[in-house]
Simulated assay, not measured.
Amino acid sequence: TPMSLTTGIGLGAQNGILIRSGDALQTAEKLNTIILDKTGTITNGKPALTDVIAAPDQDEETLLRLAASVEKSSEHPLAEAIVEGAQARGMNLGDVESFDAIPGHGVSATVEGRHVLIGNLKLMNREGVGIGNFEDPMKSLANDGKTPMYVALDGKLAGIIAVADTVKEGSKSAIAAMKRMGLEVVMITGDNERTANAIARQVGVDRVLAEVLPQDKAFNVQKLQLEGKKVAMVGDGINDAPALAQADVGLAIGTGTDVAIEASDITLINGSLIGVVTAIQISRATMRNVYQNLFGAFIYNTAGLPIALGVLYPFFGILLSPLLAALAMSFSSVTVISNANRLKSWKPGN
């Protein structure tokens, strides 16, 4: 078993997959549910600004400039898209006097003496901001797979800003491969349900957990585990770390944060979901090899031990000399090692 596991871990490294321990490799073989974080895992995590819709009494340029001024203090990928979109239009961004990131809701800040809120419907409800006639545009943008955000100025809704993230090359084929392997694929995201379902349709995911707060991701992993499932979590961000630690096997995207990588059991160096498929295939191939070795050792010992104990002597007068017994035992080890080394010829897709 140790020989096969060591070979399997080495095989993972050759395919750009860092497996921390033999336990992770063994557990991966039993997985039946894969949870995929959306942003940065299924998608590229590099969204771009697509729409700016201002209220009738607001100026579109002012709306975007103030929003971008706030978002330049945020580390979220969506914030970066808004800032880059404003800068591409030649806007000079103002200084932020105060900034507060509200997990799962959005951000609040003061710019040029104006109080700015940027976030989802939960943030607007929490702050008592009415959304007026903007519900239909929000639904339309979300149905297109975009992520729309409300922007409020001084306690009044000023408009909507939307960004869109593109699906990573290979995500759809990787998810299809997971399904063919008999795995249930679940997408988890903080995005609203319409946006999440639009992305899920693009990549072929049937089950979606939308509008999940960062601190609740681990709880959602636990709920699936309580259903009796062996669950893997795939993520790349700081807020994915608790869920990666909670999962039976945590897989971190190598292009993600150090915190996520540290919390994971397996790291996918190239950042592609194909790595998840390969990791599970390596685990299954390794455990098949382990079972073969155990079966072979069992048969060998079942046949060899009685002979070594002299069971043939009363019938045939045959005794196994200590020298031959030692050679037979060595041959058993050679057989196990040779079978384990067969793993080195394994190729993805086998």
Rank of each mutant, 00 (worst) to 15 (best):
P2D: 06
T7K: 14
G8N: 07
I9T: 08
N15M: 15
I17E: 12
S21H: 08
D23Y: 15
L25Q: 09
Q26T: 11
K30E: 03
N32D: 14
L36T: 07
K38A: 08
T43H: 04
T50L: 07
D51L: 12
I53E: 13
I53F: 04
P56I: 11
R65E: 09
S69C: 01
S69D: 00
L78Q: 07
E80W: 00
V83W: 00
Q87P: 03
L93S: 01
G94Y: 07
S98G: 02
S98K: 13
F99H: 01
D100I: 01
A101P: 00
P103Q: 04
G104R: 11
S108F: 08
S108H: 13
A109N: 04
E112T: 01
R114H: 14
L121M: 12
K122C: 02
M124D: 03
E127F: 02
E135P: 01
E135S: 08
N143R: 11
D144N: 09
T147H: 00
Y150K: 08
V151K: 00
L153P: 09
L153D: 12
I161M: 00
A164S: 13
D165N: 07
D165A: 01
V167N: 10
V167T: 12
K172F: 08
M178W: 04
L183A: 11
M187T: 12
G190R: 09
N192C: 10
T195Y: 00
N197Y: 11
R201E: 02
Q202P: 14
A218S: 10
A218R: 05
V221L: 10
K223I: 04
L226A: 14
M233F: 10
V234F: 02
G237D: 00
A241Y: 15
I253M: 12
G254E: 03
G254K: 12
A260Y: 15
I261R: 01
E262S: 05
E262L: 08
S264V: 11
I266V: 10
L273E: 14
T278W: 04
M287W: 13
Q292H: 13
G296Y: 14
Y300A: 02
P306V: 07
G310S: 06
G310Y: 15
S321T: 13
F331Q: 10
F331R: 05
F331I: 06
V336Y: 14
N339M: 11
P348H: 08
